[in-house]
Every structure is written in C-alpha cells, then in structure tokens.
Simulated assay, not measured.
Amino acid sequence: MSRGYAFALLGGLVTLVFMVELLRRRRLREKYAALWIAVAVVVALGACFPQLTNWLAELVGVTTPVNLVFFLGLLVLLVVCVQLSAEVSGLEHENQTLAEESALLRNRLERVERQVGEQTPEPPVADPGPAGGTTG
C-alpha cells in the first residue's frame, strides 16, 4: 500500500471516529452524521481497495481515477450545501413564525393589562372632615 492510500485510509478512519464521537456527545444529529460516516467508509474502502476506484472509473468512462474521486467529492459537497440550505430555509420560516406569534402575544398581553388597569377602582381617599378638623 502506497503512502497516498495509507493517508486516505487514515483520513477516513479519523473522520469516522470523529463523527462517532460527535454523535456520542450529542454535538451532531444523526441525519447530518450519516452522510459524513458514509463518506468516511467510502474513502476507507477506496484506500483499502484501490482497484475498486480504477474499475469504477473505467465503468463510468473517466480516464483518470483521481478525476472521478474529485468529481464525487464535489457531488458530496453539493449535496451537503443543498441539505444545509434547506435546513436554513426551514429555520428562517420557523423563526419568522415565532416572531409573529411573540408579537401577537405581546399585543394581547398589553391589551389585557390595560383592561385590568381600567377596571381596578381607585383606593378610597380618607376625608379629613370639615375645614381639616377632627371629628369625634
């Protein structure tokens, strides 16, 4: 095994261990880790069986297997970008909905506070009696 394949195998294994650790610490959700774990496994398999990459390149019609690897890497990054864009769009919509609901609730609370303030009778003021004198 050449140093390039050993480096690819090491990179795949480090990525796999890193993803599992992030999952274990609940720093990454499963739906995001699945893609990266799949990439790590494919990289490790390609490093262990380089003839698989050559065979796949011939099957697809790519002259150099490295070009196929770069193209597949580009596709993976494109999928990740689209997935993250979809997530951000959903979060923006949810954030806008929550802001609108918060504004409506704040408005309702202010109206209720005004109604309660209007209904509260004024406390009685003690009458000092005629000409400020004491009664009794």
Rank of each mutant, 00 (worst) to 15 (best):
M1L: 14
S2G: 14
R3F: 13
G4T: 15
G4I: 13
A8M: 15
L10K: 12
V14I: 15
L16Q: 05
L16S: 08
F18R: 08
M19E: 06
E21M: 14
L22H: 05
L22Y: 04
L22G: 06
L23Y: 00
R26P: 05
L28R: 01
L28V: 10
R29F: 12
K31E: 15
K31L: 10
A33K: 00
W36L: 07
W36Q: 06
W36A: 06
I37D: 01
V39W: 02
V41I: 04
V42K: 03
G46W: 00
F49Q: 04
L52R: 01
N54H: 11
W55V: 11
A57S: 10
A57Y: 05
E58I: 15
E58H: 07
E58Q: 11
G61H: 03
V62C: 00
V62D: 02
P65G: 00
N67W: 07
L68S: 01
F70V: 15
F70D: 09
F70W: 07
G73I: 03
G73R: 01
V76K: 00
V76T: 07
L78I: 09
V79M: 07
Q83R: 14
V88N: 05
S89V: 10
L91T: 12
L91Y: 08
H93F: 09
E94F: 06
N95G: 10
T97G: 15
T97P: 08
L98Y: 02
A99F: 04
E101I: 09
S102R: 15
A103K: 03
A103Q: 14
L105Q: 01
R108T: 11
L109I: 12
V112H: 07
V112S: 13
E113H: 08
Q115V: 09
Q115G: 12
E118C: 14
P121Y: 04
P123V: 04
P128I: 03
P128H: 01
P128V: 04
G129I: 03
G132A: 04
G133Y: 12
G133L: 14
T134M: 13
